[in-house]
Simulated assay, not measured.
Amino acid sequence: MESLGELLSQMNNSQLRRRSDELKARMMNEPLVRDLCIRHPELGEEQLNRGMAKLYQYVNDSRHCANCPGLDRCPNDFPGHYTKLTVENAGNVVQLVDCQVPCSKQVRYEQELMVKKRIQSFYVDERALSEGYKEVEILTRDSVRAPAVGQVFRYINATKEAGLQTRGLYLEGHFGTGKTFLMCYLLHELAKEGYSGVIVYMPEFVEDLKSMLQDSQKLKETTEIMKQADLLIFDDIGAENLNPWVRDHVMGSILNYRMNRKPTFYTSNYSLSALEKHLSFTSKDGEEINKGQRLMDRIAPFVDVVTVSGSNKRGRA
């Protein structure tokens, strides 16, 4: 439908009066307008005539919304919004007041946008963070991993009820069992509650840190982001090629700051004991048991271990 202004601007005076009368009659016969008049008998003919353009927009938007083609193709003048009419009495003068209200699809879009702004990823596939998560599907996708899923769900609910925890989770298991997926779901759910989150893919992060040796400002900004985030996930820890500087000065600094303050989460193919052995060995200095233990003292006491069993789902639709 054309706007009311466009229709009337194309006509001469006689056509304008005739078309105006036709539009008025049609508007008064619209179910939405009849319902408005029933709910507000104080609306007289004069008020309705003065508010005809608003009534037209109200009906037009409602018709578009009833046959919504999707948010990206919204035909309303203000995409993602519809006209809402109220009747107000100001100084004993009754008048129609219109305002633009976001539709349910626009509200969901804005909520998702806010969720995405609260989550930052380093080297993690963005698709994992933009899934259309469904709890039933997560629970039933692989019955073998159901106990692990239950633990993650309980952690999310506990945080929603009691606030940010100081302990995180350590998800251990074979390749492709959905550990990263579950952590992304946790981030998504808690971001909806207002918490900020960071997820870091360890192998690429450690490689990128080498270039930051020449950019101290970027290094400081990156580590500060990880220190301050409400939720921090080190994804695939144990798969990186460690060097002493990364282990002792970067990882150690981040974890030292977060322990007893904010929860840190991990996904790994290693158990905690196997991870300690991994952290004790670097390509430069070989095995340094004390250094590995020192870092593990900032990991193991602050996590609950979740064993994620199941089949390898990578590459499957």
Score class of each variant (00 low, 15 high):
298 R>W: 08
232 L>W: 05
79 P>W: 04
82 Y>L: 13
103 C>I: 10
30 E>A: 12
193 E>L: 11
35 D>R: 11
283 S>Q: 12
105 K>V: 02
212 M>D: 00
1 M>E: 07
25 A>M: 13
75 P>K: 07
111 Q>P: 03
281 F>G: 07
243 N>Q: 04
88 E>Y: 06
217 Q>K: 15
221 E>Q: 09
259 M>S: 03
54 K>I: 06
24 K>D: 07
172 E>K: 11
41 P>L: 08
270 Y>K: 10
187 L>R: 04
224 E>V: 09
73 R>M: 01
307 T>H: 15
48 L>N: 05
194 G>D: 03
41 P>Y: 10
7 L>S: 09
85 L>H: 09
112 E>F: 06
235 D>R: 05
98 D>M: 15
60 N>M: 12
13 N>F: 15
129 L>A: 05
86 T>W: 00
78 F>L: 12
164 L>Q: 06
127 R>D: 10
248 D>C: 10
157 N>Y: 11
259 M>E: 02
181 F>Q: 02
108 R>C: 04
114 M>V: 10
115 V>A: 08
18 R>V: 13
257 Y>F: 09
187 L>Y: 03
112 E>M: 12
223 T>G: 01
112 E>L: 13
315 G>M: 09
209 L>K: 01
301 P>K: 02
308 V>K: 10
170 Y>A: 05
169 L>T: 02
